[in-house]
């Protein structure tokens, strides 16, 4: 977009609106942008979801295949999360192996899924010690208008919820729904001074890369946290953000479930 040259001007605009207690798009401080979730968009994948969060777009595809279990968990399936921030998604993404930002994104999304035990890995055993289902969660960024992380997390869980285990393809019986028991929602806030803005847009992120992500499960327990960016966080602000994240996650979960069930 030609406006990238205006980054510094945008930053001033965001900050001046903040001084008036407002966000540039009129949202409340704890409000997510409008979310749109479509599952089953990639028929060749075992599961998939396209998510639009504001103008940010991410597609997640789930591929599954039998493989060897990890030695210390011989009867549990394996989840592998990878994120590709491909160049088409942003003028600042360069081709090449994953950089620290995409690695961090994948690992934080992974943590949310894993620690909430959203996928029941014990139901993914084919033959203990020899063969289990490997679930590849591949995040493909399409358009970075800020907060790819939360969009990716939503797309990942939505894709998993719509995944069918391709047992028949491998002669392992009938296909079955991937068992998904929880719906972790990651809530990322941009921190500016002693304020925080949930689900920052790219324009808001022109102020800085200083964020805190809190991932919350269905029972309001926190399953992952990640402070990212070069800033110092006060205990007071941390408290406020955790509170806001818990309530924002509830709203997001409700909205996404509504959209998925309608489909």
């Amino acid at each position: 977009m030609p406006e990238d040259i205006l980054v510094d001007i945008k930053k001033d605009y965001v900050l001046s609106k903040l001084r008036d207690g407002e966000r540039i798009d009129g949202r409340k401080f704890e409000e997510f942008r409008r979310v749109e979730v479509k599952t089953g968009v990639i028929e060749k994948a075992e599961g998939s979801a396209l998510v639009r969060l504001g103008n940010t777009q991410v597609v997640v595809g789930i591929k599954m295949q039998p493989g060897e279990p990890f030695p210390d968990t011989p009867d549990k399936g394996i989840i592998i999360v990878n994120a590709e921030l491909v160049p088409l998604a942003s003028p600042t993404f360069e081709p090449g192996p994953p950089d620290e930002t995409s690695i961090e994104l994948a690992r934080v999304v992974d943590r949310g899924i894993r620690e909430s035990e959203a996928v029941d890995l014990s139901r993914l055993c084919i033959e203990a010690g020899k063969s289990v289902w490997i679930v590849f969660v591949d995040i493909h960024a399409l358009d970075d208008d800020g907060n790819l992380l939360d969009a990716s997390a939503i797309a990942s869980i939505a894709a998993l919820m719509s995944t069918k285990v391709p047992a028949s393809r491998f002669g392992l019986g009938e296909d079955f729904d991937l068992p998904v028991n929880d719906f972790p929602v990651s809530v990322t806030s941009l921190i500016v001074g002693n304020r925080f803005l949930v689900d920052p847009s790219r324009d808001e992120l022109s102020v800085g890369n200083t964020t805190l992500t809190v991932t919350v499960d269905r029972n309001d327990s926190i399953v992952a946290m990640q402070k990212s960016g070069d800033y110092l966080l006060s205990e007071n602000l941390l408290d406020q953000i955790i509170d806001a994240s818990i309530s924002a996650s509830k709203k997001m979960r409700e909205e996404v479930l509504k959209q998925i069930s309608k489909a």
Binding site: R114, E115, I222, I242
Partner: peptide, 19 residues
């Protein structure tokens, strides 16, 4: 101790436990 410079968490904790 003034502020937090690094913070990560994985697992499951309630709000109270975090405090």
């Amino acid at each position: 101790i003034e502020s937090i410079a690094l913070l990560q968490m994985d697992g499951r904790m309630t709000r109270a436990e975090i405090k």
